[in-house]
Design a binder for these strands. Structure first.
Lengths: 337, 337
DNA sequence: TTGTACGCGTTATCAA
DNA sequence: TTGATAACGCGTACAA
């Protein structure tokens, strides 16, 4: 094993002080050009790589941003994570990713870990509102935390909020306007409450009665769950249209219908959420509520770096809340064209 | 802002030394039970969270494992990442995720970052073999690095190798045995060379001539790229079967065929790679080469922790190489049933 | 232009 | 059972 080279090794090699080496490495003008070059030369020769951890300890800044996400298999969540990672890299930050499996205890644990690792800030896709106190604690120790909420209303935190209530509302309204009166709903469970409420509000505003028998709740976004939900929901109840909390659920349901020779949208209209590529390339291109990743991540990053810049007065700052409006991408499964 | 509490704050509060606090917090038996409890009590009251960074500096161990992956949008890669993250958590480790966009410069950069952040080990999905020297450098400073290679042969590194050569070989052979003589190939580009070679070898072994006109190379796994590839490849050349480097590519091609009223598999047989859920739930269930995530990650974790345990003699250890064999999941797009 | 001294929060060694 | 002191690798104020 080659021992990891430190600044001290470079200093000894050149008969300089550690301080001189430190300054030379960050190209301080206070250092003689000649020695600066020599230092860099030896650093390269020794394969010197700075110890970020030691630096962080003195600078009280790690340049790491934590990202907590319920389920990485959810394409919009992971696309959000990837997009943010890229934006962070450009600003000299790295990302520490943690998943919670939609479990509030894991979420709480993840927050502890990130705080103890001294991350400079945290993005959080909350699974539910159970950890509000902990979130406040994090903010109290001056770590900016930005919620990327597609779900519940979090008035006490900075957040960028994808208005999924409205997404479900326009989707269900669309189906109602097309004449459907029995509209089923595949409820994605925790983190999808707002979609559920938007669906109910749309029914109400269109004079339709909410029937709990038309709702199936699942705990993951998968084709399989969609397929099984369709199997549970569609044979009875006179359902003619289906709104699903995710495209995968919708596509699983689509598959169920097609296997039974049903025509979509004529026999069954289907609308999904997230507008994934899989929706565009489905057997029958799927109408879907778009999740605006670029808008969301841009706003979230702006907000985060604003908070980072005002870190000292974080506690006196009123939580900011940015809302992103979704839109309905109309394709062939809803019958509007 | 509430200042972050340190051990010193607890010590002052109780009139103890920092050392005593430190020991008490890790429940050392050398500490009086009463003071131990008091320390824990005050720690909780002060909302004390240990500073992992300071600990890492003295322990020379961060309990962070780096994970470098070309493209997080690739489902098998992200599933691998997530699976490994969960396994790591159980062992008290966290994961730092970096993406490279299949760019060797980013890959090199990511390695530098992880080394400078003092990670204890690195998993790497290599994009190509360009960074072998750098990988050796990492190993030389005693950081275990395990390649999760679906691609090229890396004799100089510890690696868990998904035998994609064989995967492509059995898939193409399967098609050849079904009577196809003009088999197209959608080449996923860098990181998919072994699939390409397996495809060629299968042709050869079945007496078929390799025709470069039957190969389209793309740079990402997307439905769109698959659709466009089909558009470029299928109208001419008398192709009757198509092997794609990923299920998304295959499904994009499937969509192209179906839009044109082609029957699959009668008019066009299609086989993909990775055996995603989307393959099972496709309009016509897709035959696909399975990627064994569980096997791969289990082996990779075992290997990593073996290396971690022998960290001091890493340089004298011969690189280990574990091979995982893929299998062909036969469904309806190949015509075998 | 370069060097000395100290501090970051924690753990480890050794003494009391 | 507890405390004083040094060390981890680096950055910064100040001195030379």
């Amino acid at each position: 094993m080659t021992r990891r080279a430190r600044q001290e090794d470079i200093a000894r090699e050149l008969g300089l002080s550690i301080n001189t080496v430190s300054l030379a490495l960050k190209n301080s003008k206070r250092i003689n050009e000649e020695t600066r070059q020599k230092v860099h030369q030896v650093a390269k020769a020794l394969n010197y790589i700075p110890n970020t951890i030691a630096r962080s300890l003195v600078e009280k800044k790690t340049n790491i941003i934590g990202f907590i996400v319920p389920n990485i298999m959810n394409p919009v969540q992971i696309e959000t994570a990837q997009t943010i990672e890229r934006k962070l890299i450009k600003k000299g930050y790295n990302m520490m990713l943690m998943t919670t499996d939609s479990d509030k205890n894991y979420e709480s644990y993840a927050l502890d870990i990130l705080v103890s690792r001294q991350v400079d800030g945290i993005f959080l896709f909350p699974t539910n509102k159970q950890n509000q106190d902990k979130i406040k604690t994090v903010r109290d120790v001056n770590i900016p935390i930005v919620l990327l909420s597609g779900g519940s209303y979090e008035p006490a935190s900075d957040s960028v909020y994808m208005n999924q209530f409205k997404g479900a509302y326009i989707a269900a309204s669309h189906l109602a306007q097309l004449g459907h009166r029995r509209i089923g709903f595949i409820h994605g469970g925790s983190g999808n409450m707002e979609k559920f409420m938007g669906y109910q509000q749309a029914l109400k505003d269109h004079g339709l009665e909410f029937d709990p028998k038309l709702v199936v709740t699942v705990d993951s976004y998968s084709y399989e769950q969609g397929y099984l939900s369709a199997d549970a929901l569609l044979p009875a109840h006179n359902v003619t249209a289906l709104l699903a909390s995710s495209d995968y659920l919708a596509l699983g349901a689509l598959r169920w219908c097609r296997e039974r020779g049903m025509r979509v949208p004529e026999d069954m209209a289907i609308v999904g959420f997230d507008n994934l590529e899989a929706a565009r390339y489905a057997e029958i291109p799927l109408t879907s509520v778009a999740f605006k990743v670029e808008q969301l991540t841009t706003s979230a990053m702006d907000l985060m770096f604003e908070l980072l810049a005002e870190q000292d007065k974080l506690s006196s700052r009123k939580p900011e809340r940015i809302v992103i409006e979704p839109s309905l991408e109309i394709r062939n499964t809803c019958g509007a064209r």
